[in-house]
Structures are given as C-alpha cells and as structure tokens.
Amino acid sequence: MKRMFAIPSAILVAAATLWVAPATAAPPPGTQLSGAIFTTDASGVPVNLNIYDAKEDVYLNGGPGINAPDDAAGLPAGTYSFQVTDPSGKVLLSSDAVACRQFTVNDSGVIQDTSPSGACAHATGLDGEDGGATVQLFPYADTPNNGGVYKVWVTPTEKLDCNGNGNKNCFVPRYSKTDNFKVRSDMIVEIDVRFWKNGVAMDGYAATWVDTNGAHNIKYSEWNPAVLAFHEAHFEATEEGTHSIHVASQPGCSITAVAAPDGSAARVRGGTAMVPVTVADHTEGDHTYWVDVACK
C-alpha cells in the first residue's frame, strides 16, 4: 500500500516516475535553524524506514540533509546538545548527563566532533559522503511508547533553557530539530511529501516537518529505492497526534496547489502552504500520509 503514484484530484496532474533536478533549491521559510538532522548507522548510510536492529546501532548525522541540492545550507557552525526521548519529549531516555551529549558543527555545516563532551563523549563514526562525523546516541533507555517510537532532539547548547516555555528536559522545541526512529519494530508509519511538475515527480525539493511538540526538521524529495524512497521527502516513524508540513515555492517549483492526506486542497498563500497531518496510533497498522505539491 505504500508506493502508489496516483495523485489526488486536487493536484490535477498525471502520475509519473521520471526525475527532474531543481535549478537551485532553498529551504522553506520560517525555520529557526538551517540544515537538517537525521539518524543513520555509524557510516552515515541511511537506514531503511529509520528502523534499527539495536539501540546501539543508531547514530546522529547532520548537515544540509540527505540528497539536498549542492547549495542547501547545513547546520550553523557552533556547539550543539542532543537527547533521546519518547515522542512527547516528556520522558528523557538518554541516561548520561547532557554535558556528555555535545558535538560541534564546522563551517561547512556538518558534525565535526564531540570534543565539548570531554572524557564522557559519545562514540563517533565517519560519514563517507560528506566527511563529517556521526555520533552514537546510546546510552538511552527503552521507549515507553506503544508504537516503539524514539525521538532524537538537537539544539544549540546556548539555547538550552530549563525555564523556557514548553521546554522538554531543557530543550526548547522552537530552537530544536528532531527526527524519529524505531528499534526492532517493523510498523511503517510515515509522512511523505511529493513535488510534481507537468506530471513529473521532482527530486531535491525541501519540505519542513513540525512535530507534535513544535520542533522541526527539513527533508528533501529523493529517488533511492534501497531505502524505499521513490521521489518523496520522508518523515519516518511520525508519532500519534497532529503534525504540520510546510512547503514553499523554490527555484523550479512555483507552488500552485497542495493536496492534504485526505485529498483536500490546502490554502496556498504567497507561494507557501501549511498542511496539518493527524497521525493515528501506530498499533492501528502501517500507514503512509501523502502530501502532494503541484508546481509550475
């Protein structure tokens, strides 16, 4: 049920599986941090559906984003902290001190090292694609979530605020990027965003996901059958509750219409659109929530 190419009537274009590269893609407006984070293995290789065999296998990666255009921005240079929680952010699963969960980002926007953490720093690997470091998330406890979902948070260390409004263990959602993953749980629940132009599915285009806590991340549409990516920007293991997807016109894609998962048309204003997506409990079974964007 996952890989269907029919486009809702709100988009009014034919399905296709061709590829068109964007001229120069830009992230949608309104994001507080440029770049993206994502979970991988130690080598930086994307893991199918963000589902891992063991908690020790999950590593953090960062930068412009997987399959982002060459000119896409990475994370701003600086020092960052991370945590692993349940999807709500209320249950801290990371079991060591936040001082041990730090890394630096260099001027190219990728993770450089874990030197700010000193002797208790997490293990690292090397991303063979961008030359940056990957950071092991372990140690952390098992998630209490009945769908087996974990959430990793990243925020600039200087933005940690234990008194901040709505903070999650001192991580303030509006300053944070998040990504979800699962361990030994094969239920597929995801939000996928596709960009269409003249009936052609386009790769390298940015969509922003705002999770149920108000934290965000950016992914790019891609063609990568090895990880079941067929011209979509993937947001994997999205937790139960209401999320939102934000899209904006980018070079090569002036947005004309956006279809929500229920087939209704989202309002497009000034080349931008926001689509609310309500995700069901994972115990209800596999589900892909499609957001389709028509471009001219």
Rank of each mutant, 00 (worst) to 15 (best):
M1Q: 13
M4G: 08
V13E: 14
V13D: 13
V13P: 02
V13I: 09
A14Y: 04
L18R: 09
L18W: 01
L18C: 09
W19Y: 15
W19A: 15
G30C: 08
L33M: 02
S34Q: 13
S34N: 12
G35E: 01
I37M: 10
I37P: 11
V45D: 13
Y52M: 01
E56H: 01
I66W: 14
P69Y: 10
A72C: 05
L75E: 09
A77D: 04
S81M: 05
K90N: 09
K90P: 00
S94C: 01
C100E: 11
N106C: 08
G109S: 10
T114G: 02
S115D: 14
S117Y: 06
H122I: 00
A123Q: 13
G125D: 06
E129M: 10
E129A: 12
G132P: 01
P139E: 07
P139G: 06
D142H: 04
N146E: 14
G147M: 11
W153F: 09
D161A: 13
K168R: 14
F171G: 06
V172Y: 11
M187L: 11
M187N: 12
I188C: 02
I188P: 02
E190A: 15
W196P: 08
A201N: 14
A206R: 11
Y220G: 06
F230D: 09
F230L: 11
E236N: 10
A237W: 13
E240W: 03
G241H: 03
H243F: 00
H243A: 00
S244N: 04
I245K: 09
H246G: 00
C253E: 10
C253P: 10
I255N: 07
T256Y: 06
V258D: 02
G271S: 10
T272D: 08
V275D: 13
V275C: 12
P276E: 08
P276M: 07
D281K: 15
T288I: 15
V293S: 10
